[in-house]
């Protein structure tokens, strides 16, 4: 099965070509104009998607060395995400498919993050425990065969990536600041300052990061000069607090699920401290941890195509001309 996939749920316009589960191309165009506004502006994002979608799709087809006529299906993210941006991807994808008499495979964005790890070689075995951690989501899920899911817990306020970005703003690191915290933390001591690990002993699988955000805010107000002088230490300590919670809860969930395989997905899975912590967990020999390669961690169309390829084997292939985005689509 040769699939063209489209992703436009937030601020990345992406198109990919997948053939029999192999990625032939994966073009990602990230929108940088949101930096000056300190967050993604949906209307500007939607306009940029509409401006670039044909060129990105063209590039993906060209790089795959295939022709439009070789395509057998078009996959597209239809939620969750921002309405304006999703509308562009969904309407472009289904009309492109219609013009070539191809079926459309609607894909859930969160679900596709989990399947970013289903590449050649080492593949997770179902059932597994999945941690989806990004700027918009933080949730733990048990993934069963036949695309069935059981949500174990999720964030009650900020997503982990959102906490990283908001704390980075307080530290004057701009937006998106998560990767900058990661960079600065490399030369800092993770035990230099003590920040709370919210809900780490709550006994359930929910998360909360707004308390940590407030704790950092108070700390910065009271220790402005110290924080400024020891910025790498602050970054390392904040990062350790977030990573500790994510790892501890994931481990608790894996124990409950009695699954050996743990899959990490979403933009924050590119965080080096998180990757290191999960690699150490794997070294214990009790668990197999799957971390997507960095290019498949953030939003991209290849993961959409990888999931669509698996779904195409078990679900009916339809034109879905009526498909509309569902911004709050659940897994």
């Amino acid at each position: 099965m040769t699939i063209l996939s489209i992703e436009s749920s937030c601020d990345e316009t992406s198109a990919a070509v997948i053939r029999d589960g192999k990625i032939l191309s994966n073009i990602i165009s990230s929108q940088w104009m949101h930096q000056q506004f300190g967050g993604v502006v949906p209307e500007l994002s939607a306009r940029a998607h509409l401006r670039w979608i044909t060129e990105i799709t063209d590039a993906a087809i060209q790089q795959s060395n295939l022709k439009k006529s070789d395509l057998e299906a078009v996959a597209v993210t239809y939620g969750p995400g921002l309405m304006g941006p999703l509308l562009v991807g969904v309407n472009f994808a289904k009309s492109f498919a219609f013009s070539l008499n191809l079926p459309v495979i609607p894909v859930n964005h969160i679900e596709s993050h989990l399947y970013a790890n289903f590449l050649d070689g080492k593949q997770p075995e179902l059932p597994f425990t999945g941690l989806i951690v990004s700027g918009g989501h933080t949730l733990l899920v048990r993934v069963d065969p036949s695309f069935s899911y059981q949500i174990l817990g999720q964030t009650r306020d900020d997503a982990a990536g959102e906490a990283f970005d908001k704390i980075a703003k307080m530290l004057g690191l701009g937006y998106p600041g998560g990767p900058k915290i990661d960079q600065l933390a490399k030369s800092g001591h993770l035990t230099a300052f003590e920040f709370p690990r919210p809900m780490i002993h709550s006994g359930d699988y929910d998360f909360s990061f707004s308390g940590l955000k407030t704790a950092v805010k108070i700390f910065l107000k009271e220790n402005r000069e110290l924080a400024s002088a020891r910025l790498p230490d602050v970054c390392a300590s904040v990062q350790a607090a977030i990573v500790d919670v994510l790892v501890a809860k994931t481990l608790q969930a894996a124990r409950k699920n009695q699954t050996q395989d743990i899959v990490i997905a979403g933009g924050v899975s590119a965080n080096s401290a998180l990757r290191k912590a999960f690699c150490e967990l794997e070294k214990t020999g009790k668990y197999r941890v799957f971390l997507p390669p960095p290019v498949l961690s953030t939003d991209n169309a290849a993961m959409v195509g990888l999931l669509a390829n698996l779904k195409s084997k078990v679900l009916p292939l339809l034109p879905h001309t009526e498909l509309s985005p569902v911004p709050n689509l659940a897994i």
């Binding site: 509409l50 439009k68 509308l87 309407n91 009309s95 492109f96 498919a97 219609f98």
Partner: peptide, 20 residues
């Protein structure tokens, strides 16, 4: 309407690109 135009133009772009 921004939303309306977005739907019309993205549909037109998809049809034109697919059909050449």
């Amino acid at each position: 309407s921004f939303t309306g135009l977005r739907i019309g133009v993205s549909t037109a772009k998809g049809l034109c690109m697919g059909a050449g």
